[in-house]
């Protein structure tokens, strides 16, 4: 099976430089059969990054991509708290750079319309849009989106595909929350490999709306691959989840950039 990993970071992995860390990730990915990695956020994370932090973190990813562009795709890290800088980072890293997606994390909940100019421009560029979400029993961060917040955003952009990061973590809730919003896709990454996540997602969303990701290096590739390898679903559905859905979403921007994959 072809496997593309939607969700990787340069943290939690050995290496003194961004390119060393991405090289390490690729080394481990090779052991478990992963062909391509999507990478976002830099060496030093910030939950509520300043405008300059965004630029520095994106610089790290650009540097890592320069050495490993045949194995990795980059997503630009943006924040609705810094719309102007985010839009300029989009131009720098996606329009004029090698990146092909957008990462939105926990600085500002995504139901706030402040985020709309970022989504609008990313959609124009056909960039893949990824929004972190969780439903935490232990309470979310102040700026951390839930899948419900993402549904509110997705309703404002019904033609734009958007990925629901972590499927909300508590996936029984996340899957239900996004089920009726057909432009939302479920990212399987970054929660424990609890049995049933993929079976429920396939049943409720359909295999066409599910994408494999790991959240490595903090997570092992292994535990997250197991959600698909171990699921009681067809091999055809596994192939969609492991690669085809993400690849299809990404193909327009890859073609526009002349990238073959």
């Amino acid at each position: 099976m072809r496997i593309w990993d939607l969700h990787c970071h340069l943290s939690g992995v050995a290496g003194l430089t961004p390119e060393e860390r991405l090289g390490s990730l690729i080394k481990y990915a090779d052991r478990v059969g992963i062909e391509r990695l999507c990478v976002y956020m830099g060496m030093k994370w910030a939950q509520d990054p300043s405008a300059d932090d965004l630029g520095k973190q994106n610089d790290d990813v650009l540097r890592a991509l320069e050495k490993h562009k045949d194995r990795a795709f980059g997503f630009v890290y943006l924040s609705a708290k810094h719309v102007e800088r985010s839009l300029s980072e989009l131009e720098r890293c996606v329009t004029n750079g090698p990146m092909v997606g957008v990462k939105l994390w926990v600085a500002q909940r995504c139901n706030d319309p402040m985020i709309d100019p970022i989504i609008k421009r990313a959609a124009e560029l056909k960039a893949v849009i990824f929004q972190h979400t969780w439903f935490k029993t232990t309470a979310n961060y102040a700026g951390e989106s839930t899948p419900d917040d993402l549904v509110a955003l997705a309703k404002r952009f019904p033609e734009v595909p958007i990925i629901c990061g972590h499927t909300g973590g508590t996936w029984e809730l996340g899957i239900r929350a996004i089920r009726e919003q057909k432009n939302l896709f479920a990212d399987l990454a970054g929660s424990d490999p609890t049995w049933g996540i993929t079976e429920m997602a396939v049943r409720e969303l359909g295999a066409d709306r599910i994408i494999y990701g790991s959240d490595s290096g903090g997570r092992s590739f292994a535990s997250q691959l197991a959600k698909v390898h171990g699921a009681q679903i067809s091999d055809a559905d596994k192939q969609k989840i492991f690669c085809d859905n993400l690849r299809n979403m990404m193909l327009p921007i890859l073609k526009a950039k002349g990238i073959q994959a």
């Binding site: 481990y28 052991r31 478990v32 424990d192 490999p193 609890t194 049995w195 092992s220 590739f221 292994a222 535990s223 691959l225 197991a226 959600k227 390898h229 171990g230 699921a231």
Partner: peptide, 16 residues
Amino acid sequence: APFFYWESAALKMQES
């Protein structure tokens, strides 16, 4: 297992 997919542990042996 069965709380976790069994394959998680098996693949960890392969990843290392």
